[in-house]
Design a protein around this nucleic acid. Sequence first.
DNA 1: GAACCTATGTTATGATATATCGCTCGCGAT
DNA 2: ATCGCGAGCGATATATCATAACATAGGTTC
Lengths: 175, 175
Amino acid sequence: MSSIAPGPAGADHDHQHCIEQAVALAGEICQRRGVRLTPLRRRVLQLVWKSHGPVGAYAILDWLRTEDGRSAAPPTVYRALEFLIEQRLIHRIESMNAFVGCVDPSRPHAAQYLICRKCGIVTELEDQSITDAIAQQASQRGFVVHDQTVEVHGICGRCAASAAASRSATPAHPA
Amino acid sequence: MSSIAPGPAGADHDHQHCIEQAVALAGEICQRRGVRLTPLRRRVLQLVWKSHGPVGAYAILDWLRTEDGRSAAPPTVYRALEFLIEQRLIHRIESMNAFVGCVDPSRPHAAQYLICRKCGIVTELEDQSITDAIAQQASQRGFVVHDQTVEVHGICGRCAASAAASRSATPAHPA
DNA sequence: GAACCTATGTTATGATATATCGCTCGCGAT
DNA sequence: ATCGCGAGCGATATATCATAACATAGGTTC
Ligand SMILES: [Zn+2]
Ligand SMILES: [Zn+2]
Ligand SMILES: [Zn+2]
Ligand SMILES: [Zn+2]
């Protein structure tokens, strides 16, 4: 009834704990900010956190209908997502038209995302050297930055390691 | 019958020249690579270059129909775009679901884009310091980079300058 | 000239996102 | 208490972006 998250969620930790922690923290933050984390918004946040990978709006819509039996239409979901994004409780992954929970919603940040093509896990960075490099190039050209989108696609450390392991398990000249 | 491009294209240069140059260069590159820049693909490239801003697939579709009178459906356009992307003659702007001509298609490159919210112009950078900062953070985490998406939204130098000019033209305490 | 490959046409559908209207509920002002 | 008001959400319709699947046309190989 809890614990281990499936496949792309990260296969080996108490993911239920990730979800609970994210939702609890969101509650505090919203209270502090004087904005309303309504039951629907809370539930959508929970669903975004169903995995550590990007989750599509229509997947959330399906879950609202099938798991909750709730009547729901696209605007239901998109309005909740819009709120969560404004509050920086989730991020939108532009290159996938999907959404992912923010790992550090307390303070504003320019984040970067490492997105694994194998397992789907998104690692959120807040690396100043990347932010600075971008800011520097922009300002050199008189460009005023409002908003950075940095999405890196590739293979995560874990998947790379397991691929290497299975390769070395095979005979030296397999084909 | 030529020259000055409208609005978001860049209001003050011989944009027809930009287009012709891009298409001619594309022709050479494709020949060198032994791939076929067919009339349709050439025309779609031309249409992507209609401005220096991102152009949507369906805008291209409309132009094919209304300007060329050609029978065209979405796959017509998307297939041509796919070819042009593979050949790196254009880039996809993920955060806008749109496409922009590549300013330096000869060699492969990891590019970054400065996208102006006012005038729509996209400035393509190929900055090693950004690429390196990303590569370094990734490899530190064992992440193998396949592909970087860096899209910076904000106000370009020209628009910022003209906004500042019109502000300073107004009385000191306007409201 | 038959087999084959590439590019394109054609039809249908899938996937993502927004516009608009109207209802309800909580809450402060009168 | 009741009125007005705004936030949240339900519901319907539609807009926007993208691909699947199959048909056709033309050129190349043998
Ligand atoms: Zn987890
Ligand atoms: Zn992975
Ligand atoms: Zn130009
Ligand atoms: Zn501008």
